[in-house]
C-alpha cells in the first residue's frame, strides 16, 4: 500500500518531465543533431547525396575560393547594413510620430505593418512588377514628363542588390515601428513631464531622454532584423532570382542552389555552417542577456 502510493506519487512528480520530453526530443534531434549532421557533411566530399568520407576543411577552402560566395558575402554586408539602418531609422521615426497622440493611429499602424503579414514571395512578386523598368515606376515618371528618369536597378547588376533592400525595408520597417512603439508606450510619462517642467524642448527630450531609454527595444530590433537579413531567401528568389547573373546572390540562396541545384552538397553544408555561426554570434549573447535580465527582474 505504502510502496504503491509512493510509486504513484513519484510518477506524478515525473509527469511534467515525461510530457515535455517528446517535444524536447524532437527539438534536440531536428535542431541540434541536425546542425551537427550538417557540420559532419561539411567535412565530407558529398555531392549529390551525403558520403561520409572525411576530407577535412576542403569544402570550406573551396567555398572561400568560389567567387559566387564572395559576391554572396559582400551582398550580405551591403544588404544587412542598409536594411538595418533604413528599417531602424524609418521604424523609429514612424513610432515617434505615431506616439504624438494623433488621430487614426490604429489605422496608420495597421497600414505600416500589413506587409509583415505577407509572404516574401508575394512581396518579391509585387516589387518585381513595380521596379520593372519597361512598365513600372520608371515609365510612370517618364510619362509625367521627366523623360530622362531612369530606375532600372533591377536589371543593373551593380544596383540590383539595392532593390532587395527597398523591398526588404518596405516589408520589415513596420516591424521595427511596432517594437519601438511598444517601447515608447512603456516609458513612464512623468519622466517626460519632469523634463518639460525643466524647460527642455520636445526634440531635446527625445534626443537626450527618450531615445536612450529605448535601448532595450533598439537592441531587440537590431538583433531580430539581422536575423531576418541573414536568412533572407524567398525575397531574393522572388524578386531577382539571385540575378542578374549572380548579382544578388546571398549566402542563403547560395547554400540552396549549391545543395539542390549544383550538386555541391559539401560546399552547401559548409556555407550553411558559416551562416549558422554568424547567426549564433549575434543571437546567443542576445538570448543570454535577455534571459539573465528577465531572471533578475
Amino acid at each position: 500500500m505504502n510502496a504503491a502510493k509512493s510509486f504513484s506519487s513519484r510518477l506524478a512528480g515525473w509527469l511534467p518531465r515525461i510530457v515535455v520530453a517528446p517535444s524536447l526530443l524532437v527539438v534536440i534531434v531536428t535542431v541540434y543533431l541536425f546542425i551537427l549532421w550538417t557540420g559532419v557533411i561539411s567535412f565530407t566530399s558529398s555531392k549529390f547525396v551525403p558520403i561520409y568520407d572525411f576530407v577535412g576543411l576542403e569544402q570550406f577552402v573551396r567555398l572561400w575560393a568560389t567567387p559566387r560566395w564572395h559576391t554572396a558575402v559582400a551582398n550580405l554586408f551591403i544588404f544587412s547594413a542598409l536594411f538595418l539602418l533604413l528599417s531602424t531609422g524609418i521604424g523609429l521615426l514612424m513610432a515617434i510620430l505615431l506616439d504624438q497622440n494623433i488621430r487614426s493611429e490604429g489605422f496608420l499602424r495597421a497600414v505600416y505593418l500589413y506587409p509583415m503579414a505577407l509572404s516574401f514571395i508575394v512581396t518579391g512578386t509585387a516589387w518585381k512588377w513595380i521596379l520593372n523598368p519597361g512598365l513600372g515606376i520608371q515609365k510612370v515618371v517618364n510619362e509625367f514628363g521627366w523623360t530622362d528618369f531612369r530606375f532600372d536597378w533591377i536589371t543593373d547588376p551593380k544596383m540590383a542588390i539595392y532593390t532587395v533592400v527597398i523591398a526588404g525595408v518596405w516589408q520589415s520597417s513596420g516591424f521595427a515601428m511596432a517594437i519601438f512603439l511598444a517601447g515608447l508606450r512603456g516609458i513612464d510619462n512623468s519622466v517626460i513631464k519632469a523634463a518639460q517642467i525643466e524647460g527642455a524642448s520636445l526634440p531635446l527630450i527625445y534626443r537626450q531622454i527618450i531615445i536612450p531609454m529605448l535601448r532595450p527595444a533598439m537592441l531587440s530590433v537590431i538583433v531580430l532584423l539581422s536575423y531576418i537579413a541573414i536568412k533572407s531567401f524567398d525575397l531574393v528568389l522572388a524578386l531577382t532570382n539571385g540575378g542578374p547573373g549572380s548579382a544578388t546572390e546571398l549566402p542563403s540562396t547560395f547554400m540552396f542552389s549549391a545543395t539542390f541545384r549544383r550538386n555541391q552538397m559539401g560546399v552547401g553544408a559548409a556555407s550553411a555552417i558559416m551562416m549558422l555561426m554568424t547567426v549564433a554570434a549575434i543571437i546567443i549573447p542576445y538570448l543570454y542577456s535577455e534571459l539573465r535580465e528577465r531572471n533578475n527582474g
Binding site: Y227, K231, M255
Partner: peptide, 15 residues
Amino acid sequence: LLLFGCFLPYQAILI
C-alpha cells in the same frame, strides 16, 4: 534549448 530554435537559420538543417 527551445528558444535558440526560434533563431535557427534553417539552411543549417535542410540537408
